[in-house]
Design a protein around this nucleic acid. Structure first.
Lengths: 233, 233
DNA sequence: GCATATTTGTCCGTATGTATA
DNA sequence: CTATACATACGGACAAATATG
């Protein structure tokens, strides 16, 4: 047969280097990034043929990647119509925050006098400060998400870690609805510091209260932006 | 080992008639039932060729079904080695119960004087009583699971419902480690009634305390059985 | 309402790389 | 080291549903 030399946008290069991850997993990684950065905005349809050709993978492999992302709730699958970037409803956002609140508050509540490892939290705060200084509001949002992932990790449960990862990935979809990312992300930096301080002092209950108000405010702000965006869609 | 896969007839017939459900989905349903009833015990390897031939589907289709069940954490996929029925480690069980406790206790804690709809809980208790009378211990376990699913539903969150569904499906895998299903399931029937009574009285805090002890005891009993079963496998 | 083209749903056969006996 | 078995991924075929004119 002739040499099937196809330009594969670096996909097979990765495979040659580290064949640990499957192709579908790598394709899912690429699409996840594209979605997170807003390249594929919520509501967009992702045609199999077009994207498969663009990434140089077969339909079967691409569909497997779609399945992975559908399971992460980043895509929705409509029968015989295709896959779309998920568009969260108001109820979705409320539900998401209810679970966030449950898990995050429970995670900090148990923190006591011998404080557990708070290194990840401090790193996230530091990254947030750097992003704010550089006026990189997207990065600030990322640092914020890292902070809350670290909060969830305080529970010391692999399952909770996984759920938090999923929740925060969905949250990224919501962020794209915010017209002014700076006004949305910047105020929470100081509140993260405050929560971290309470945790360092071993005052889990205080941290829980602060975190609860934090989440209430963030939800209210998001819903406000959502109601503004409620135009025909 | 398992040359005992019964060929479920009607697989191709359904496809010709109504393509509503996918073949892979139906295969997954069959395998899920087989796993839940203990026909495929934890640790069993599911060879593609053998099962595919027994069910009359191609390897690709079967792999699709495997993927669905892997997403549900009922199977584990070892790279280039095959799929196995998941065998939960002691740490897995502890982690599972930690999350269960978090979600279920939070769900009942908020129950107040105007009690929410407790119909599903009452139905589960009734089903459990019937199963105990018939000495159907497997059914009693199912009713028990339904009870706790209904408890999670009190939170009124679609996400929590889904998480609980997954947790309880995994729990089924653990039940198979119990040598005496009666002694494991029967005592909890009375405790379910007790919890339901507290909820009907609007005493969420009481229900939370009862539920917490319930889960502690169940976990201890399971871990006890697990340590006994720690022989080569 | 109808006939069209396009896209997706499903399944198969095969080639290639990898792990294990 | 060779051989076998298996997983991974590809491309293609056909059916069914949707969108389009």
């Amino acid at each position: 047969m002739a040499a099937r030399v196809a330009v594969r946008s670096g996909l097979e290069g990765d495979r040659a280097l580290l064949g640990r991850t499957s192709t579908a997993g790598r394709v899912a990684d690429i699409l996840r990034d594209r979605i997170a950065e807003g390249f594929f905005p919520p509501g967009d349809r992702l045609p199999e043929d077009e994207i498969g050709r663009a990434l140089g993978v077969s339909r079967n492999t691409l569909r497997e990647a779609f399945r992975l992302l559908t399971h992460e709730r980043l895509l929705v699958h409509e029968m015989n119509r295709g896959v779309f970037v998920r568009r969260l409803s108001v109820e979705d956002v409320v539900d998401l925050f209810q679970l966030r609140r449950l898990l995050e508050c429970a995670a900090v509540r148990t923190v006591g006098s011998p404080s557990p490892d708070l290194g990840a939290l401090r790193d996230a705060v530091k990254a947030g400060r750097g992003a704010a200084r550089r006026r990189g509001w997207q990065d600030l949002g990322t640092a914020n998400i890292r902070f809350h992932q670290a909060i969830g990790a305080l529970a010391g449960s692999a399952r909770i870690d996984e759920i938090m990862r999923g929740l925060l990935a969905e949250l990224r979809l919501v962020f794209h609805a915010m017209a002014d990312p700076r006004r949305f992300h910047e105020p929470y930096l100081a509140r993260n510091v405050e929560i971290l301080g309470a945790l360092e002092a071993g005052k889990g209950k205080v941290a829980e209260r602060l975190l609860g108000r934090y989440l209430d405010d963030a939800l209210a702000q998001l819903l406000d932006a959502y109601s503004e965006r409620t135009k025909g869609a």
